[in-house]
């Protein structure tokens, strides 16, 4: 476990800010306690300071996980967000999409979201914007990236993909072994 370097912090923040924008400030500086980002075995964890200090007592080989895993660094130093980050970003998310009940399952199986499955959407979204995906009953299902702007969405054909799938809660079952 170690702190992130400046470059790594920048990469992580850039990815997170795609979803939460300016609100990322509230993740770094929280009123309800001190939280920090830590790197362990290529994965980035969002941890409470006290918990992180306890975790320093555990050897690198023995420590499996702590706090919330936000994502991982690839070998080429890109940052990939993981479904476990959903809880961290969902309360600060700026851009949202609501999925119709009949399209929910398709998304939870790892497919992109098509226009026909779109229930509601936030105004003024640009293309390739990080977006949180909710069911119509406001349950967060995952996140992805928009492939069309909000304006284009309106006029799109039912079969066109409007949001690319990145992570969904179905992964908790599908990729249980690789999530930790």
């Amino acid at each position: 476990m170690r702190a992130l370097t400046d470059e790594e912090t920048r990469v992580v923040f850039e990815k997170l800010s795609k979803f939460v924008g300016e609100n990322l400030r509230y993740l770094v500086e929280r009123p309800d306690g001190s939280y920090c980002f830590r790197l362990h075995r290529g994965r980035v964890y969002y941890v409470k300071e006290a918990l992180m200090k306890w975790a320093t007592n555990i050897g690198r080989k023995n420590l499996i996980s702590m706090g919330v895993c936000v994502g991982k660094f690839t070998k080429s130093k890109k940052f990939h967000m993981q479904i476990t980050a959903l809880d961290v970003i969902q309360s600060y998310s700026k851009f949202k999409m609501w999925i119709k009940p009949n399209a929910e399952q398709a998304f939870l199986y790892g497919n992109h979201v098509s226009k026909s499955g779109l229930g509601r959407v936030t105004e003024n979204m640009v293309q390739y914007q990080g977006v949180l995906l909710y069911s119509m009953s406001d349950i967060p299902l995952g996140f992805g990236v928009t492939s069309k702007t909000t304006q284009e969405c309106r006029r799109a054909e039912p079969a066109t993909v409007i949001a690319f799938h990145q992570a969904d809660t179905g992964e908790y079952i599908r990729s249980e072994t690789t999530l930790v």
């Binding site: 476990m1 170690r2 702190a3 992130l4 370097t5 400046d6 470059e7 912090t9 920048r10 923040f13 850039e14 800010s17 924008g21 300016e22 990322l24 400030r25 770094v28 500086e29 001190s34 920090c36 980002f37 830590r38 300071e49 992180m52 200090k53 320093t56």
Partner: peptide, 29 residues
Amino acid sequence: KTQVGPVAGDMAAERKKNLEILSSVTKRK
């Protein structure tokens, strides 16, 4: 050489540095 801060050092300083990075990240947009 990349510099890595201490694992559990001065948390206030780390937070300050993170906020600086954050402002530079969001400023670009």
